[in-house]
């Protein structure tokens, strides 16, 4: 009878931890009075509410039935999340064109169905399209080829 709903339990604990993190940081700031609230006042109240709600969710997880969790997208996380980070790290140095090419390529690797050649072709296509649309047509102020490639004479 006493099964634990793991989804709810984890959610509850997560909310409590986030609440504690925000709360601890708020205490480091000036709290002020309720007449003149300092920067820490409102966040501290919110953190308290979040901890309370997290506690309620955790408590309710003991009374409900467990649910099956779907598969985790490990491969997806491994390639999708680094894509924008890579773009951020290289868009200034490498420039827009090579940076968006590799960003698309990295993202394309997230699916097992993508064959290497298809991924390459797709990335080339996306790069040409994006360069035409964003750089030439919309005129976004990006350097097409950055300083890291200056040795190539571009």
């Amino acid at each position: 009878m006493n099964t634990i709903n793991k989804t709810d339990a984890v959610a509850g604990i997560l909310f409590i931890l986030i609440g504690l993190a925000f709360g601890a940081q708020s205490l480091g700031m000036e709290l002020g009075t309720s007449l003149r609230m300092g920067p820490g006042y409102f966040p501290l109240v919110l953190a308290g509410i979040l901890i309370l709600l997290g506690g309620c969710i955790l408590a309710s997880s003991f009374k409900s039935i467990d649910e099956e969790m779907t598969a985790h997208a490990w491969r997806g996380m491994m390639f999708i999340l680094p894509a924008p980070i890579f773009f951020g790290l290289t868009v200034r140095g490498l420039g827009f064109v090579p940076s968006i090419f590799f960003t698309t390529l990295i993202a394309a690797l997230a699916s097992l169905k993508m064959k290497p050649l298809a991924a390459l072709l797709l990335s080339v296509g996306v790069t040409i399209f994006c360069t035409l649309v964003f750089s030439y047509a919309l005129g976004l102020p990006f350097r097409r080829f950055g300083p890291w490639l200056s040795f190539l004479g571009m």
Binding site: T104, A107, A108
Partner: peptide, 16 residues
């Protein structure tokens, strides 16, 4: 699997 890399490229450019 063809759509989402395109979406990722657009998202990155868009946010930046």
């Amino acid at each position: 699997h063809i759509l989402f890399p395109v979406i990722m490229a657009f998202c990155s450019i868009g946010v930046y």
